[in-house]
Simulated assay, not measured.
Amino acid sequence: MQSDKEVDARNLNCPLPILRCKKALNELAAGQVLKIMATDPGSKKDFDAFCRQTGHTLLELQETDGVFTFWIAKRST
């Protein structure tokens, strides 16, 4: 999947992956896609909750060798 920005949050524990995600989304325009990679096992729940609470769209989640890769579309304002 194509992304407009990429953030590497591997080896960071909660809440740092979410904070990095939030900062990166603030730099994107509505509809653009952020790709973020994390290794914290709790990140699956965290990013799902983050998207539901903020209105962003979790487009896809892939897990490969303990790395969770999320594609998140920034909400329209």
Score class of each variant (00 low, 15 high):
37 M>V: 07
65 D>Y: 09
49 A>I: 01
63 E>P: 12
39 T>A: 07
54 T>R: 03
48 D>L: 10
22 K>P: 08
19 L>E: 15
47 F>G: 02
52 R>W: 02
17 P>I: 13
8 D>K: 13
61 L>Q: 09
40 D>E: 09
42 G>A: 04
69 T>W: 01
51 C>Y: 05
63 E>C: 05
44 K>Q: 03
11 N>T: 09
48 D>V: 04
9 A>M: 04
21 C>P: 08
65 D>R: 06
76 S>K: 03
22 K>I: 10
16 L>P: 05
4 D>C: 05
3 S>Q: 13
33 V>S: 13
65 D>Q: 10
60 E>Q: 15
26 N>L: 12
2 Q>H: 15
22 K>D: 15
30 A>N: 13
24 A>Q: 08
45 K>Y: 00
5 K>P: 00
12 L>M: 14
56 H>K: 03
30 A>R: 11
21 C>S: 11
61 L>H: 08
6 E>G: 12
62 Q>A: 12
31 G>F: 05
42 G>L: 05
34 L>V: 06
71 W>H: 08
46 D>V: 02
23 K>N: 14
30 A>D: 15
22 K>C: 10
17 P>A: 15
40 D>P: 03
54 T>V: 09
23 K>G: 14
25 L>T: 08
61 L>K: 09
4 D>E: 13
24 A>M: 09
62 Q>C: 07
69 T>D: 02
72 I>G: 00
68 F>Y: 04
64 T>H: 10
1 M>Q: 08
54 T>D: 06
